[in-house]
Computed example of a mutant assay.
Amino acid sequence: MTIRTDNQIPTTDPRPLSFTDLTACLELSDNREWPLEDRKWEFLLRVGQGYGIVDADGKLAASAVLTHFGDFAAISMVLVAAKYNRRGLGTRIMRHVMAEAGDSVATLYATPQGQPLYEKLGFQATSGCEVLTGAFTGRGAGTTRPAAAGDLPAILRLDAEVCGVDRTHVVSRLPEFADRIRVIERDGEITGYAAQTRALSQNGSNQVGPVIAATDAAARALISDIAIDAGGQTRIDLDTARPDLIEWATQNGLTPVFSCKAMVVGGATLPGDRGRLYAPILQAIG
Rank of each mutant, 00 (worst) to 15 (best):
A227Y: 08
I190R: 02
I53R: 06
I223C: 05
T143R: 14
E247N: 13
L45G: 05
W41N: 10
H169R: 07
A82T: 01
D239R: 06
D30M: 09
G275L: 08
G138N: 07
S104I: 04
V170N: 04
P116G: 05
F258Y: 09
V131L: 05
P146H: 13
H96C: 04
L254S: 11
A218L: 10
T107L: 12
S104F: 11
D216A: 13
T143M: 10
L28D: 02
K261Q: 09
P116R: 03
S201I: 07
D57F: 07
L270T: 03
I212D: 09
A82E: 03
S76C: 05
M263V: 06
P256I: 06
L22A: 11
L254G: 02
A64Y: 01
G253P: 04
Q283N: 12
A99L: 07
E119G: 13
Q115C: 09
P243A: 06
A160E: 06
N31E: 02
V208N: 09
A199Q: 12
V105T: 01
A141G: 15
L36M: 08
C25K: 08
L60Y: 01
L200Y: 09
P14T: 13
M1H: 11
I190C: 06
L245A: 11
L17W: 00
A217I: 06
R180T: 14
T137W: 03
A149K: 10
T2S: 13
